[in-house]
Amino acid sequence: MGNILASEFLKLRRKMVWFLVVIGPTGVIALQALNYGLRFDFLMKQYASDPWGYLMINVSNLLVPALLMGMTIISSMIASLEHQTNAWKQTVALPVGRTRLYLGKFGVTALLLLGSTTLAMVGTILLGLLLGHELEALPWKSLLIAMYGSFLSALPYLAVQVWLSVAISNQAVPLTIGIAGLVVSIFVLNGPSSLDWLPWKWPFLVRAEPMYSMVAGLLTGAVFYLLGTIHFVRKDVG
């Protein structure tokens, strides 16, 4: 497995993917810094009761769309590495099981986004400290849930994007579907709780319903991952 991931990371050298992995969380934190900076006194007064809590809400409201978009774009870029140069046939002909190849594609995408999530978390803490919030008052559990919890609840989305990107050589399709999914999720995020079964809602729901969203995300993600694997294993490659 290590080798497959190493090979995938090697293919990503000098690629724009790295720029995106960093620019996503940086942009989110920068925008919130701007948001706070512009209305500092007003927001501080309004959020006085729970400064860290509100900061997390603000950050994650932007982070989740950025994360979903990152999942769409990075899956596509990683699959494109093979599509663009017709390298699938070469990769698939290597003495490596297709199950593991697929795991490699999924793994590298997930790791990159996990990296982005971690950057965003570090950024949130730094921004909080910069705004003068007390480190002792930082609710670690909520922070971890707001960050990694969002990631886990978004796994179905990631699994579908990796599947589509790998299966369809025309990357316009997965990218468009991913963008559509993002917008759907933004519009259901404030929707009634009767819509809580929609996977698109989970990454936003995770702060309120952490257990439900994360478990549902993991399970549904696993199902789509398996479906993607099965399809990839059986698919003709040419």
């Binding site: 942009g27 978009m69 596509s76 663009q84 963008i179 933004i186």
Partner: peptide, 27 residues
């Protein structure tokens, strides 16, 4: 850019801030 993903990344990077910016009367 020949890739489909690259221009879309630019697009998304500039569009997502709308969620904040569009609500700001100043910016």
């Amino acid at each position: 850019w020949a890739s489909f993903a690259a221009p879309l990344s630019v697009n998304v990077i500039f569009t997502l801030p709308n969620m904040l910016v569009a609500n700001s009367n100043d910016y």
